[in-house]
């Protein structure tokens, strides 16, 4: 089981690292969006500190949604997705492998760069730490839920926007608890409750999302 998972992850990682361009562009999209807000809202540190969690989280959500289409699209175009469906290995396992590879390529860079961006918003170190933890818990859940939308809208015209429209309502709890955790800990209330909920959402989506995405793949590729 683990071997197949690892081979799928390895394959996807090598593929993704070969053309780094869209990997980099996704990261810069996140950086630009986060850096734009102070220009729009003004330099007062007080307000910036207030809006920081929300801005970073919305930008992370948008960036991960932007990158979702690539999970299955390239394989669908060159036909390797059909081969993947025909393998004896359980499809949800392969889907988890692809989502994990996608998260490593898009999610983790977001998490690593977010503390640096947090400094733009004059966040103290422990708030930055909580921000990183929530992003670490949240971005995989975003990729998992987004994979269902990507599988459903495979090969449709206007797939990217449609995918965002489908997936957005489903990712709102992640956004609420993510931004809420940072806010709660910044205001001294303690964000543990939010973090537990986020971990719960992550586990639930880790169990259900691959099943739904696999079923959606079987339908889309038929």
């Amino acid at each position: 089981m683990i071997k197949t998972l690892w081979t799928v992850v390895q394959r996807d990682l090598t593929l993704a690292l070969r053309n780094r361009s869209d990997l980099i562009s996704n990261l810069f999209f996140f950086i630009i969006v986060v850096s734009l807000f102070p220009l729009g809202i003004g330099p007062e540190l007080e307000t910036l500190r207030l809006i920081a969690p929300g801005v970073v989280w919305v930008a992370a959500l948008l960036a991960s949604m932007l990158a979702l289409e690539r999970i299955f699209a390239s394989d669908f175009d060159d036909g390797s997705l059909e081969q993947l469906l025909l393998t004896p290995q359980p499809l949800p396992l392969l889907v988890v492998g692809k989502i994990l590879a996608h998260w490593l390529v898009t999610g983790v860079p977001l998490v690593m760069i977010s503390p640096i961006l947090g400094i733009q918003y004059d966040l103290s170190s422990d708030v930055l730490w909580i921000l990183v933890v929530t992003l670490l818990l949240g971005t995989p859940a975003l990729s998992l839920i987004g994979a269902i939308g990507a599988a459903l809208t495979l090969g449709l015209r206007g797939g990217g926007v449609l995918n965002a429209l489908l997936v957005m309502p489903l990712t709102i709890p992640v956004l609420i608890f993510g931004a809420g955790a940072v806010e709660a800990s910044a205001s001294g209330l303690g964000g543990e409750g939010h973090l537990y909920m986020m971990a719960a959402i992550l586990v639930v989506s880790l169990v259900f999302a691959p099943l739904a995405a696999a079923a959606a793949l079987r339908i889309s590729v038929e």
Binding site: P169, L170, P173, I201, A212
Partner: peptide, 14 residues
């Protein structure tokens, strides 16, 4: 159908 079923699981969470 899949989208609706995924949605219905999410309604209580949302």
């Amino acid at each position: 159908a899949i989208l609706i079923l995924v949605g219905v699981i999410n309604i209580p969470i949302i």
